[in-house]
Design a protein around this nucleic acid. Sequence first.
DNA 1: TTTTATTGTCTAAAAAATAGACAATAAATT
DNA 2: AATTTATTGTCTATTTTTTAGACAATAAAA
Lengths: 241, 241
Amino acid sequence: MKLFDEESFIHQLSIDCVIFGYKDAELKVLISRINMKQPLWALPGGFIRHEEGIDQAAKRILEERTGLKDIYLEQYHVFGGPNRINHEVFKGLTTLRDEWVDKGILDESGMQWLAKRFVSIGYYALVDINTTHPQKSELDDSVDWYNVKELPTMIMDHNDMVVQALETLRLNLDRKLIAFNLLPETFTMKEVQELYEAIFDQPFARNNFQKKILDMNVLERLEKKFTGAANKAPYLYRFQK
Amino acid sequence: MKLFDEESFIHQLSIDCVIFGYKDAELKVLISRINMKQPLWALPGGFIRHEEGIDQAAKRILEERTGLKDIYLEQYHVFGGPNRINHEVFKGLTTLRDEWVDKGILDESGMQWLAKRFVSIGYYALVDINTTHPQKSELDDSVDWYNVKELPTMIMDHNDMVVQALETLRLNLDRKLIAFNLLPETFTMKEVQELYEAIFDQPFARNNFQKKILDMNVLERLEKKFTGAANKAPYLYRFQK
DNA sequence: TTTTATTGTCTAAAAAATAGACAATAAATT
DNA sequence: AATTTATTGTCTATTTTTTAGACAATAAAA
């Protein structure tokens, strides 16, 4: 099967996904290492089919590249500089060309397509790492979580795409109540706070933070959690809305 | 000269501009009536050249379609439904086809291109109507200001594009200090307030509104304005930042 | 039994937003 | 010339929100 079937897709328009995850009090991003002779890191991305809407395309692309299903993605910015060309992948493909052409997954017109200048729509989402198990596709060597503060150098402007997605995330965190997507089914208030501190990369006052979150009126308080620690047991909360 | 030269542009990707203007305490939008047998209303839009960035393209398109120069446009949303096809304009073109093909401004491949499904990047801006004089292009019968509350029915999803642009405008008005673009060089506080009331479609308290605006520290107070009215003369202000 | 660490909540203080009041003023009215 | 009217600019009081400080409750360790 042809991997880059230029007939099926809108040309020169792509989608890239910034998937934030959270674990061990650290904010992470899902990044794939592309299956090439020399390693290339990139956000999970792809192209838009003629018969699908862009939101739908973003969902499909994310699933194809990472196996993640039913993730709510939100578009946040379009990246369209005049020379936005994927030199890195194109260079990698040329070294693989003969092998892949033989296998029938790449042909000349596919190569020409990928060498063009692309405009890319950035989408972002937040997921709970504990319940999310990315599966790499045949395009990639790996799909893994990287600490947002220690990202590898990615192709094109993908590092900048993450920076801008993070800005959008911070702006929308309270308004859209998306933070709770990053937490397990039940959680303590301390866990919520650590999550906020990871996302904003700054500390919050415990007393006022608790009040602010409870005043949102979207959390249900459950029983206390006996942690075995030498202190008062915290309540567990569940997100409801 | 060929009007729709499909070779020069990225296919299936367009830009549409929502230009807000303000006059007589009313918020207006710049809308063109396309030069067709039967009238079609549309936002000023166009396509992206291979060698230009999208922001640059938006500026060029706006100038080509309306004559407006040096307007700061900001992208706000991408519209990419699965069947986003410009039926209206295509239908209009078919009735003009023979005439235009004769003139050499349209050919078969141009028609095929325009019949495709398009993803459109929405841009918006604010301008001072008093110092802005839109000039229609040869594509259009007219380019005119319409009250945002009484817009004509436009092609495709252009009415929805305006709604979403207005939401973005309201969210960003204070943060980006764009309101003052809608006012003449010097203005009174009452004029600023009327502008805000037009944009938000709601009244503000005069005393507190004045305080809020002055606390932004971006206005310079000039001399008083002798209006000839039977009351205290208001100060004039100038935007400086 | 006392100590320690952490949680939940209360209150005080500070800051910001809202509402009410009034003096200043330019022209119209008397 | 004095008074009235309409509008502007600003001040203060009030309310609401945010921030900071304090302390009781609690589970286990000492």
